[in-house]
């Protein structure tokens, strides 16, 4: 097995970036839904909730179909690269990030909009103020996306290929080591995965709390 440190660092940057992309998309989606009519927004939110449970192997397959030589994104030559995993894991993390965020954003924007209207304003410039009101939810949204991304196997295996030294991440390393009977190595990697996820969650939650209290 290649160095556990290399695998860990690779997992962190791939999943960290993927969850950042999905978080930004979730934020934009949440604000759009918050401004839409409630009936429409609820239907979309319901659809997003249903996507949370989609198996990562299916998303891995979708990513593969997008990037494979006859796929629409074939010219990008991203299949079996870390970027393929970033794309796939962004799709994995997006529904869960959006579901966590959507209702908070809607509630916050509603309050800020009502306040703005009462002070004579009719439009615009409220997103920053509304986002400030839900800082803990912003952190939670990123963290649930990150947890989902770093813990998934389907995308990393199907679209990434689990190539040693290149696209091998923590989950594919566990799968590989288990499949060849190296249970001790597999368990070590598993413990690293759990520890990393827990530490990062704790660190970001603490940061979020500090920012929240100082605001």
């Amino acid at each position: 097995m290649e160095s556990l440190l290399d695998i860990t660092l690779r997992s962190l940057w791939i999943s960290g970036l993927a969850s950042l992309v999905s978080f930004i998309a979730a934020l934009a989606l949440s604000f759009s839904l918050a401004r839409a009519r409630e009936s429409v927004a609820n239907v979309v939110a319901g659809f997003l909730e249903s996507l949370v449970g989609v198996p990562t192997t299916v998303i891995g397959l979708l990513t593969y179909m997008l990037l494979y030589p006859r796929g629409p994104l074939a010219p990008l030559n991203l299949l079996y690269t870390p970027w393929a995993i970033v794309i796939g894991e962004s799709l994995v993390a997006l529904p869960v990030s959006a579901v966590v965020l959507y209702r908070s954003v809607r509630r916050s924007l509603s309050v800020v909009s009502e306040l703005a209207a009462s002070l004579g304003l009719t439009s615009g410039g409220l997103f920053g103020i509304a986002a400030r009101e839900i800082i803990p939810d912003l952190f939670t949204s990123y963290l649930v996306g990150f947890s989902r991304a770093i813990g998934e196997l389907g995308v990393a295996l199907i679209a990434g290929g689990g190539i040693q030294g290149y696209t091998n991440v923590l989950t594919t390393a566990i799968a590989l080591e288990t499949s060849i009977g190296n249970y001790e190595d597999a368990i070590s990697v598993g413990l690293v995965l759990i520890s990393i996820t827990a530490l990062i969650t704790l660190a970001l939650k603490t940061m979020g709390e500090r920012i929240w209290r100082s605001s």
């Binding site: 800020v112 306040l115 004579g120 009719t122 439009s123 009101e133």
Partner: peptide, 19 residues
């Protein structure tokens, strides 16, 4: 409407305060 709205201020019975 925006022009007309800017002439009015409404203060809520229950205050809306932000963080």
């Amino acid at each position: 409407f925006a022009e007309l709205k800017s002439k009015f201020v409404y203060s809520h019975d229950k205050p809306i305060l932000l963080r």
